[in-house]
């Protein structure tokens, strides 16, 4: 037990913070600890959580995928166009969208892994590119989806209380943890992030693993997108743009190093959860959203300063 705590120190601390905040808000606000609010709390974080998982993956490999929000937004537009405008069936629409998302990720990975260009430079460019594609397809306007066709992913509650998107997220977390804790490519991505030169001497193919990393990022942006598109019943080419920097914050907050090789998917998701509970709890206590923003910024800096001090 103690060893487990030692090994997952960061995750334990974050989980404790989450629990303390949970108890605190339960007492502080009458409306907080209700079934509907707790479900709300989780379902609000789904899209950010998916993007953070993707962001964390790119950070594990020693890079950063700034195009993740653009891919997500583009996917909402694609889904909306396929299902809403073109009247396609939902399943083929989703599959085609997923394929396009992964192609975007592979393009990123190709430029970063094979052409060896700095990941932030590449994804800064592809961010504009993918946003642009979304804008062109949507002609710059919001494309709506008929409610009945796309309601499953963000507007349906199983047994009357359990939002489907929470199940989707649970599945997403499971897959991400599986990939980065239990599968060989995930481990190799960590090792590349720790030191690409050492990885090369250990026979790890850097370019192909980077390709996998960025395909993973984009796939997760896609999952974030279907939930988002369903919740707002539409697609828009900049709908997730603001989530990029938020996902970086959440991942860093969750213990993912911007220098690569360090962090965990569990930590990243806990980072999102803590940020989400602060937002939701303060909402319930009628604090302004602005105060929430300040607290998140301050928390980020304090946690970093603290971690930094320990390192020295």
């Amino acid at each position: 037990m103690k060893a487990l705590f030692q090994k997952h120190r960061n995750e334990t601390i974050l989980a404790s913070i989450f629990l303390v905040l949970f108890v605190f808000f339960s007492f502080a606000s009458r409306n907080f600890f209700t079934l509907s609010n707790v479900m709300n709390l989780f379902s609000q974080m789904v899209t950010l959580a998916f993007l953070t998982l993707g962001m964390a993956a790119s950070m594990f490999s020693g890079g950063m995928d700034l195009s993740i929000g653009a891919v997500c937004s583009m996917c909402t537009v694609l889904c909306a166009t396929f299902v809403g405008t073109m009247g396609m069936h939902t399943l083929p629409a989703l599959l085609i969208t997923l394929a396009i998302a992964i192609a975007c990720g592979l393009f990123n990975g190709f430029l970063i892994g094979y052409c060896k260009i700095n990941s932030m430079l590449v994804t800064l460019g592809t961010q504009s590119l993918y946003t642009g594609i979304g804008l062109v397809i949507s002609k710059g306007v919001t494309v709506s989806i008929p409610l009945d066709r796309f309601a499953l992913f963000g507007r349906t509650r199983l047994f009357g209380f359990l939002p489907v998107e929470i199940l989707i997220l649970a599945l997403g977390i499971l897959l991400a943890v599986l990939m980065f804790s239990y599968l060989i490519p995930g481990r190799r991505i960590f090792l590349i992030g720790a030191n690409p030169q050492v990885a090369r001497f250990a026979g790890i193919n850097i370019a192909s693993n980077i390709l996998v990393t960025y395909a993973f990022c984009s796939a997760y942006a896609f999952f974030g997108a279907i939930v988002l598109a369903s919740r707002v019943a539409s697609g828009r080419a900049d709908v997730a743009a603001a989530l990029v920097l938020k996902s970086v914050s959440a991942a860093v907050f969750g213990g993912v190093s911007t220098l690569g090789g360090i962090g965990s998917m569990a930590g990243a998701i806990l980072g999102v959860a803590v940020i989400q509970i602060v937002t939701n709890g303060m909402d319930m206590m009628n604090f302004s959203t602005y105060l929430q923003q300040i607290s998140i910024g301050a928390m980020l800096l304090i946690v970093l300063a603290f971690r930094h001090r320990k390192r020295h």
């Binding site: 970086v248 914050s249 302004s288 602005y290 929430q292 923003q293 910024g297 301050a298």
Partner: peptide, 13 residues
């Protein structure tokens, strides 16, 4: 990223 949130939040507040 942290100061961005603090600046915007404070300003809006």
């Amino acid at each position: 990223l942290g100061t961005l949130n603090i600046m915007r939040g404070t300003l809006n507040l």
